[in-house]
Design a protein around this nucleic acid. Structure first.
Lengths: 235, 235
DNA sequence: GCAGAAAGTTAGGCCATACTAACTTATTTT
DNA sequence: AAAATAAGTTAGTATGGCCTAACTTTCTGC
């Protein structure tokens, strides 16, 4: 068995790190990822994915079976989490230490995550008090590669009458983030679903003292930790 | 004349930025740079430089005459200064805001300078009070592209009996930086040359209360703003 | 002013990463 | 289970950035 030789510690290129992150996100850490899905997430042609995936598999980062998608190996998973940690620590640092607006930290972190050393990232984390989540509520992997992988319900799935605390919003679309901030739908806020119109209609909810209505597409981007039903209509 | 089309605002690649920085450093901002010198500074083969230099010239960043070296165009100079500003602001920020050790800020900044946005760099600069020099004493270009290009004397050129203030030390060699720090030869310190042994022999100087001897190779890496001669032996 | 040395360039490769077009395999539908 | 569709791969090409080897130009020393 000489496979171990392939897993040498060459530094990963920026595109390689992006592939691993994408595959991690698609498979929620351990599941398989389809070629087309990777391509779509990275905005590249599916044909390009085949080639890159082969190279990453040769490096021992992916388990790849032709025509059947890929999965991260243990070493691939570690690499993905390392990048994810960098990304999220950088986001948190930009936001907390430099007053960077929350709708733009993601974009900046996308580039910095490939350039920042682990030492820098650790110093950033220490400086802002070892945060556990990034500004959008995404959990920050620890130095040794563990993460909270709890899966939350999205606001779009919450029944009328239910309440919950916003734990996380998706981070990529600046415009959406600005809108959510305007509505004060932010991590930590308590929301209650008042009603849901049928046929993918608007969802009415209360956040703090406000009452507002949002579409299901937006609601799907808001993850919730449900609270006990406050005893209203059910099912 | 359609040459202007070539000068479009495509983002520069990291290697391109490195070439421009090197050419700037060699030509002190405006002079010509020889192929071999660029190659040496970037640790690549001279043949590789020819190719890259052609591409950069096509983009309007360099004035290139085959067999006669290159010079930065105005647009190339601006690009070089933009990168230099990023580099030095990042160094200053790492040092002041994150307690990064001064012998390692250069290395970290070398990668971050290609990834950090102008906005980030401006925020960093603002956060640490718009510094004018980096931790090694190198002047930081302003947002609008001006720099102090004063040329200082090196400690190796200072006559016995002369004094001066250390304004800058070269930043690339961590070991050297640690040694200089140990000797307390740091920007801002006053030094006086006590004596110089002939045939490139050691230079004896006083720094604060200490008296010490260094070789000319090291002394050449320390730039000095001379003070009035304190009236000793001359010539 | 010419020979040899030094400097610089071209030629021909290589690798990573992307692309399109054409083909193959897998899945779904009927 | 055959046909249609979707998903995935291969083939061939491009580009940026690097390499070595071989060639050309420029400079230097007599």
């Amino acid at each position: 068995m000489r496979a171990a030789r392939e897993e040498s510690v060459e530094a990963l290129t920026a595109p390689a790190e992006d592939y691993l992150k994408a595959i991690y996100a698609i498979g929620k850490g351990s599941g398989p990822a389809a070629t087309n899905e990777i391509a779509q997430r990275l905005s590249i042609a599916p044909a390009s994915v085949s080639g890159m995936v082969r190279r990453l598999a040769e490096q021992g980062l992916l388990a790849y079976e032709r025509y059947h998608g890929v999965k991260l190996t243990e070493s691939g998973r570690r690499a993905a989490l390392r990048t994810l940690r960098r990304h999220r620590v950088i986001e948190a640092y930009l936001s907390q230490a430099l007053g960077y607006p929350w709708d733009r930290v993601h974009h900046e972190a996308e580039r910095l995550e490939h350039a920042a050393s682990d030492e820098l990232v650790d110093r950033m984390a220490a400086t802002i008090g070892e945060p556990e989540v990034d500004p959008h509520g995404a959990p920050i992997p620890t130095r040794d590669g563990s993460v909270d992988e709890t899966e939350y319900t999205s606001l779009a799935q919450l029944d009328a009458g239910s309440s919950g605390v916003v734990v996380r919003v998706s981070d990529e679309d600046p415009e959406m983030l600005r809108y959510l901030a305007e509505l004060s739908i932010l991590p930590g806020k308590k929301v209650t679903v008042k009603s849901r119109a049928p046929y993918d209609g608007p969802i009415t909810l209360s956040v703090g003292r406000q009452e507002l209505s949002i579409g299901p597409a937006l609601a799907a981007n808001v993850l919730i930790a449900p609270l006990a039903d406050r005893g209203g209509k059910r099912g």
